[in-house]
Design a protein around this nucleic acid. Structure first.
Lengths: 402, 402
DNA sequence: TCGTTTATGCTCGTCACACGAGCCTAACGC
DNA sequence: GCGTTAGGCTCGTGTGACGAGCATAAACGA
């Protein structure tokens, strides 16, 4: 854990308005200054002071807004071209992606590297290389580091990963000296993706978003008021290990009857009487293709897909009951699973809801960010840290030093 | 919903230190001034200013602390005898309890009334009477109202209650004019109880506390960093309606396979081949007694209790997996259920955990507040509102008016 | 007994943000 | 061209946080 010191009360107060303004700008990209001031109920005087301060610190720049109707034209708020940046790294079985984002969440650059072998050491080397490259190109402008992995993460460490085959890996070891002292966030990939989806404008004004992504098993997270609910160690977002399935089945995680085993390629293989596939995602995709083949759907595939769609919908409804989500977002293979058996899904979802919820049942939407979801969510986490009062105080210190 | 206006940024800033100090005092009753100042890393100057302000507003009083060791003796911080109060009402099948608490969470007075009949109208009358009585005795000193019920609550309304037989009741109607404008909190009883348990010193420094109470079904809530996770509408805390049970069983809530049906008196009756009992709690208590009778335990009771204890432990472990709780607190009949079959419970709990969690498995503790848990938690909710910056600003206004 | 040590409380000057009032400025429209 | 409208700017005021320096109350020790 890097020692990211808490700002004093005074320091926090000093930056709270700036943090709020930059946060508002992040949620409403391309907003004007007057608009933002109204949104935060600031007087025009306060807005003028704040704007001057943020501009002089390279935290934002303004350009004249095109006049719209009567009145003195306002200005558009933009990310400053020499403002703070964040760097994110996503570690997946398929490859390691590093990206640099600006305060607006725009991806400025991204690189993907394919590891030669699967060892954690090699992967950490690639993560370090990615971070080092970004540090070289952007130096002090990088204000936070966020790493996501297809793994269960607790207290900044990987505690297990069936996908990567890791356990007990500390990600802090992959941060190069140039970035030491920056906030480091280590997060499960589905948790980050859920955050990215929940904060997307497409999600509307839902207060509690349940994100569920089927890949190998089912990952996901509840995002309440824009904050992921990650529990004690940050290892929340493991809905797949609720015992919603068959108690006779032993999960690789060590527990029995995990929901994980009912919704993915492993479940489909089981339903078709086949041995567990080496690549459950590929197997699931093939089974989905078989079930939806125009003209001649394979009955075995249809049955397997139907059962998985039912298990997914039933579990989603149960989680809505228990956690009081007002929106469900499906990611990974889940949208395809639902599309392959929409009526079955719908029925199982409705039947699984408590009766009083059926009147105003949560919308079940498909994820909008696609393959970038994890990167986007990871950026959100990093930007949260960079734009917190503590992060801004650090930025000011670094600007003054120059 | 009463219109409890948001304080301006300035107002919030004005009260943030006071709010923090009173919050710290609440968590550490009987703390000294110097201790509290250190805890909040305030300079002695700031502490002097703040203390003078809070004393003049009747928010706290000081008395000389008994000298302990060298150095100038400090003072003990106490609740002011004319300071703010909160009023709470707990609506249960068995009766309606109203209580008035001071800022330290001490119960100053409490009354319980037994309703003549079970209609919501009659119950609301009793709630109103309880609130009116408190308002008459304490007037402006009452700063927040918290109502708890054995019911599913969403957006301040009761949406369903098997126990009370209500649905669609708006609690705002029970607030007398004398208390209009005060923050009104309406909460499920198990959620409040869980909050009370999670904030109890007995719970230690756990970050995410999973509270599970078996009564009729199983209620509970995840409390993260002292805040209950209540989802979109405040209807979280319904873990009993996760489909962890037998999908063939239809729950009164309308869903199938609810966990609710596996752990309480209804489950025990089913396991013993009896019809559903009218009073599941009483039936469960009797079955527990039968299973633990010294000398001659009833095998049918033992079997029923064992199966329920297993279902409880298995579900608890699954929720720990999914939500990342680092402590579990059992309330209602759950401690008795565990005590009746400790080895079975232990085994099922451990087997239900993901393997990596077994090394540092969360402590499963019994609730400490007993029958008062709901009242205590309700008080916490009300005090949170009363001691928020907005609540304190309201108090100052009311003091100045006098 | 009386200075020394230690912990704490108090006063005061300074800083920096928030806010409101009053005024200035840039567009539109008749 | 002048009124209308929306928005920006300046400046005085309020207020809390902080640090420095001093005052105070107990315990300790010679």
């Amino acid at each position: 854990m890097p020692a990211v010191e808490q700002p004093s009360r005074r320091e926090a107060r000093r930056w709270s308005a700036a943090s709020a303004a930059l946060g508002a700008l992040r949620r409403h990209p391309g907003a004007t200054r007057a608009e933002t001031a109204h949104r935060l109920s600031m007087s025009s005087g306060a807005a003028a002071d704040l704007s001057a301060r943020l501009r002089s610190l390279h935290l934002l720049s303004e350009e004249p807004a095109p006049p719209a109707g009567r009145g003195r034209p306002t200005s558009l708020l933009r990310v400053h071209p020499r403002g703070p940046l964040v760097v994110v790294v996503d570690v997946q079985h398929a490859g390691i992606t590093a990206a640099v984002l600006d305060l607006a969440g725009e991806v400025l650059e991204r690189t993907t590297q394919l590891p030669q072998d699967r060892s954690p050491e090699r992967a950490l080397d690639l993560v370090r290389a990615g971070l080092d490259g970004a540090a070289e190109r952007h130096g002090q402008r990088l204000r936070a580091v966020s790493i996501t992995l297809a793994a269960t993460v607790a207290s900044g460490r990987v505690v297990q990963s069936a996908t990567l085959g890791w356990s007990g890996v500390d990600l802090a070891a992959a941060v190069p000296p140039a970035l030491a002292g920056r906030p480091l966030l280590v997060t499960n990939d589905a948790t980050a993706a859920g955050l990215g989806e929940a904060r997307s404008p497409a999600t509307g004004d839902a207060r509690a978003v349940l994100y569920l992504a089927v890949t190998v098993g089912v990952g996901g997270v509840l995002v309440v008021d824009g904050h992921p609910s990650v529990g004690a160690l940050g290892a929340g977002g493991e809905p797949g290990h609720l015992p919603l399935g068959d108690p006779a089945l032993l999960c690789p995680c060590g527990a029995r009857g995990c929901w994980d085993l009912e919704v993915d390629g492993r479940a489909m293989a089981r339903h078709r009487g086949r041995p567990p596939p080496a690549d459950p995602s590929g197997y699931a995709a093939a089974t989905l293709a078989g079930a939806t083949a125009p003209g001649s759907p394979d009955p075995g595939c249809v049955d397997a897909v139907t059962r998985c769609a039912t298990a997914l919908a039933r579990g989603a409804a149960g989680l809505v009951n228990a956690l009081d989500a007002d929106r469900v977002v499906l990611g990974g293979l889940a949208p395809a699973l639902r599309d392959a058996a929409p009526a079955v899904f719908e029925r199982a979802f409705t039947d699984g809801l408590m009766r009083w919820r059926r009147d105003r049942r949560p919308v079940v939407a498909d994820a909008v960010h696609g393959a970038d979801a994890t990167l986007v969510g990871s950026g959100e986490l990093a930007l949260d840290a960079a734009l917190s009062p503590a992060g801004l105080a650090g930025w000011e210190a670094s600007v003054v030093r120059r």
